[in-house]
Design a protein around this nucleic acid. Structure first.
Lengths: 342, 342
DNA sequence: CTGAAAGCGCTTACAG
DNA sequence: CTGAAAGCGCTTACAG
């Protein structure tokens, strides 16, 4: 069943193609009779405008491209949702790709999106994304904003979270609970979130007059497995840690499992504070203390930045930083420590 | 910075547009010298082919559209991953939209996708999707397959899971543990998964000679909140339930919370068996017994079905049904019951 | 208010 | 092996 074209509709309705196009786009005043005839023809022929053709003529598109770095990471779930809701409110559609934290896939999807001539692009850059990559994206002229992570040396809009402050508060809380051997399991430094969360960790230690011991800072990628391994190394240190700061949700899970694996209880033997809250963390045993990110709002903010950029291509770029919130549950050992204190 | 066009490249390289196109598409033998010149020009001008224009001429596309019904539901995470991996292996790109279990959004994204002229479409139909909607999709001639859920009266390829069997095994397990008052919290009947899981529930009760009591079957949508409410109704019944079967992951969470809310312990007071496993269910307190779906494989299967359909548009449609697996942890009360038995 | 015509950026027979 | 030309399905000045 070959799809009908605008020309078919025009013939069927016995009008010019221009008229059909006008009806389609709700243009100016088209005679009511003709409009009816055209709409009738559209219905009969089951006509679907070809967006490719349309875009060729008038490059304004209603679709926003979103490249997420890891669709399997629950952190992105409500972020995507917030982003979509904000887009929807502006009558924009969003299409989503998953780069899988992989530079090659990211490059491919960047190509797909630019070739699709989306109206704008929102990118969560994969680890190791080069400034040059983004600069040549800039060259294509398609408006884009960076989400969650930024890349040094690229002048672009960024919607992110205060990672330094979030990590700082988490580790500060641990210090206030009386822990002084506080280890960290962090995603490695080729991405801004890892760098910043480490910075917050260091800052909090300094503030609490706890010396930084690089032996109890271990790195991984974003995965459960890498955190599992990192934790194994961490706890095999001669001088045992009392608490662990895990730099993201999946890594918290890895830490938890590694601890369990060797029979360490949380928080009795080792306390745990994670970054990223998830809806089901309170159902965990123990309920996990974590730094909650305003992910829904972050998604919304990305849309706002992008829309502003589309409207004013040469306005100065801006970075919007949203605050995090520490949600204290059981894994940090509050209860334990309070009891001890009293 | 206006993006360069193929014509610009042709001029710059001092060749015809046809030649540039041939180089771009790795066509037949182009003189090595010209090829070099063209490639050089492409580099210099930072040329990006306009996919819209290309598609207008030769409608074969390398992108597959995926419409997910709820991006916030973790069930879809590894499903998407499997789907993408399979697509990637075939050099196809997938773009994703979220219909949010909403018929209006679904219609909109269906439009976006068909207008984009994607090579094929994979759809997780939202509740209440009409057969007529899908039939007119069929009319457009764009190949599509249904994923996870099917719609009666539509002759299309379907990749799904054995929901009846999965629910049956879950409830059978409960019965074997000695529970006879087994309630259910199920997503309502306007979508195939809900219908089938209910069917499995009924079948298992029948098999165990437990009379079906419609007072302890409560309905909701897919959300935590709806399951929370449904559970409140359920446990306010005069004759209390001993176990609850929850028809999906988010609903399990809702059941758990509602039970906690009134101080009921799981599994001591009420046992719980859910549908859908999640990577972190074993970290729950108690670890949740659940029906695991092979979601990664399900995603892969959808791609295979679609690719076959694209290759052979008029081949008979098929339904591929994957088996589930019951993962027994603590929430069903195995331990409890075993101890009691011994 | 409506139509004829040009053109968006490509690809592909058709000649040569 | 290469180029001139037609055309994919639309939209938008330009006339009238």
């Amino acid at each position: 069943m070959a799809t009908a074209t605008l020309r078919d509709v025009a013939k069927f309705a016995n009008v010019s193609e221009a008229t059909v196009s006008r009806v389609l786009n709700n243009h100016a005043s088209v005679n009511e009779v003709l409009r009816e005839r055209v709409n009738h023809a559209i219905e009969i022929l089951n006509y679907q405008p070809n967006r490719a053709a349309r875009r060729l003529r008038s490059p304004s598109s209603s679709v926003i491209g979103l490249i997420i770095s890891d669709i399997e990471n629950p952190f992105f779930l409500s972020l995507i949702r917030g982003l979509e809701d904000a887009a929807y409110a502006q009558k924009m559609n969003v299409i989503l790709c998953n780069s899988d934290e992989d530079l090659k896939k990211q490059a491919r999807y960047l190509d797909v999106m630019t070739a699709e001539r989306v109206a704008g692009l929102i990118l969560v850059p994969s680890p190791g994304t080069k400034a040059t990559t983004l600069r040549s994206l800039l060259q294509t002229g398609i408006p884009f904003t960076l989400l969650d992570r930024f890349v040094d040396g690229v002048d672009a809009d960024v919607a992110k979270v205060d990672n330094i402050g979030g990590a700082y508060n988490a580790v500060k809380h641990a210090a206030e609970l009386g822990y002084s051997r506080i280890g960290a399991v962090i995603n490695s430094g080729n991405i801004s979130t890892g760098v910043e969360r480490y910075e917050g960790y260091v800052k909090a230690l300094g503030n609490a007059n706890i010396p930084l011991d690089s032996n109890i800072v271990k790195y991984g990628d974003f995965s459960v497995e890498s955190a599992f391994k990192a934790t194994q190394e961490l706890i095999s240190q001669p001088n045992p840690v009392e608490a662990i700061f895990a730099a993201n949700n999946l890594m918290s899970l890895g830490v938890l499992r590694a601890l369990r694996d060797v029979g360490k209880r949380v928080p009795e033997d080792v306390a745990l504070i994670g970054f990223d809250d998830m809806p089901w963390l309170s159902e965990f045993s123990p309920p996990l203390t974590a730094v909650a990110q305003p992910s829904y709002e972050l998604g919304q903010e990305a849309i706002h930045l992008l829309l502003r950029r589309i409207a004013q291509p040469s306005a100065p770029t801006r970075t919007v930083t949203l605050q995090t919130r520490l949600i204290i549950r059981q894994s940090c050992g509050v209860q334990l420590r309070r009891n001890k204190g009293s």
